[in-house]
Design a protein around this nucleic acid. Structure first.
Length: 113
DNA sequence: GGCGTGACGTCAG
DNA sequence: ACTGACGCCACGC
């Protein structure tokens, strides 16, 4: 067998797994960074999910606009894509509350398998 | 090659 | 209940 280079496991796993989950998000639903990170195996790896989005959003064509924070709010700052994301979500039948919050009980994507 | 940063989240005080 | 600090680790300089 070929000798593996000093690879500390498989970063691909976390990366691919997270990407896989994100791509599986149906329309009209949203997911949180922590949720994806938890499903990927790291409950505290939310930042890594963010890093993947910024890095693979163009390459993997991830629905970055379906990613929101644990509060059910958009994390992007106004002028940085916030309005764009909100607009995209509204087009997918996602409704925002008075505080620009999404009802996670209704729109949070819950993978059953 | 080391330090700082970052679309967040969790833990501790 | 709220605020502050830390953690995760890949990427940029």
């Amino acid at each position: 067998m070929k000798k593996q280079t000093t690879k500390p496991a498989a970063p691909e796993t976390f990366h691919q797994l997270a990407v896989r989950l994100i791509q599986r998000i149906p329309k009209g639903k949203v997911a949180t960074y922590g949720q994806i990170a938890t499903l990927a195996g790291d409950p505290r790896g939310a930042r890594q999910v963010v890093r993947i989005l910024n890095s693979s959003w163009k390459k993997e064509k991830l629905p970055w606009h379906r990613m929101i924070n644990r509060n059910g709010q958009i994390s992007l700052p106004p002028g940085g894509g916030y309005e764009l994301q909100k607009s995209l979500l509204e087009k997918e039948k996602v409704v925002f509350g008075l505080n620009d919050t999404v009802d996670l009980e209704r729109f949070l994507w819950k993978p059953k398998r």
